[in-house]
Design a binder for these strands. Structure first.
Lengths: 140, 140
DNA sequence: GCGCCGTGCTTGCAATTGCAAGCACGGCGC
DNA sequence: GCGCCGTGCTTGCAATTGCAAGCACGGCGC
């Protein structure tokens, strides 16, 4: 993987760890990962597998997907930003007023984080039949 | 990873490949993976990284997430039921503290609405401070 | 100063991942 | 029969992943 992503992954993990006020060893133990390896991951020297990321995420009490996104092996779900907003609106267990409150809290957090809900792109489309003809030669 | 999952992953990939009417070599070439390795993956002899799965998925014109789920490194999105709770935890735009706040607000609303979240082990988010003391000894 | 502890990091190595070179086989044309 | 091609698989190996053993350092109590 691009070391750029691994670099930001490690930074992100260290940041989350510090935020949770865990030492390197505490997190490593909680995650079931060796502490030298965790150190290497944080410094961007190694690229951990998805399984390791899962373990780390679990110990940090964050979703594995968050780390996958940081590692570049998962694209941010369409649900970021608009996703949570949509989920709040769709939740059948809370009423309109409560939805408004949650949305307002969420918005204030985004502001606090300096997030602009500017644009959303979803160019993902499917051309399966068209490309099938292209794959015709195994040149071994 | 459990070879059980890897086994079903390989079967799934072979199934998709045959459905697309690609030979092993054609798919390997399209995915930028060696054909022996793809063969081993299909037979469950190797456990490919997420990057390789991405490449295979792209060549098959399916989402990488589909293969991640098959490989057991991603859970199927459960957008029903506890979708909002999950969406809060998964949102990459807000941090742990903010997630806790949103979850707490959401929970208070559910209480207000007389909704029982009994089945959900909700101490998950509140145990963090208590458990922090638990994670006190790096027994290295 | 010494010993202990907690912290993060170094280093060498075993296991795993992914690939290159090649094999075995069946189908086809000559 | 021979040669070529396409198909899937075998095998050995280089690079990578993850870990065990240990180091270096600072803080603290004696």
């Amino acid at each position: 993987m691009a070391s750029l992503n691994v670099g930001s992954l490690g930074e992100y993990i260290r940041e989350q760890r510090r935020h949770a006020q865990y030492s390197l060893r505490q997190l490593a133990d909680a995650a079931g990962v060796s502490n030298p390896y965790l150190s290497q991951i944080e410094r961007g020297l190694r690229k951990p597998s998805a399984e390791i990321l899962q373990q780390i995420a679990k110990a940090l009490r964050i979703s594995a997907e968050t780390l996958y996104v940081q590692a570049g092996i998962l694209e941010e779900r369409d649900e970021h930003g608009f996703g949570l907003r949509t989920a709040i609106l769709a939740d059948p267990l809370i009423n309109e007023r409560q939805k408004d409150v949650l949305l307002a809290v969420y918005d204030s957090f985004l502001k606090e984080n300096g997030v602009h809900q500017a644009d959303q792109d979803e160019p993902q489309s499917l051309d399966e039949n068209a490309q099938k003809g292209r794959i015709s030669d195994g040149d071994r």
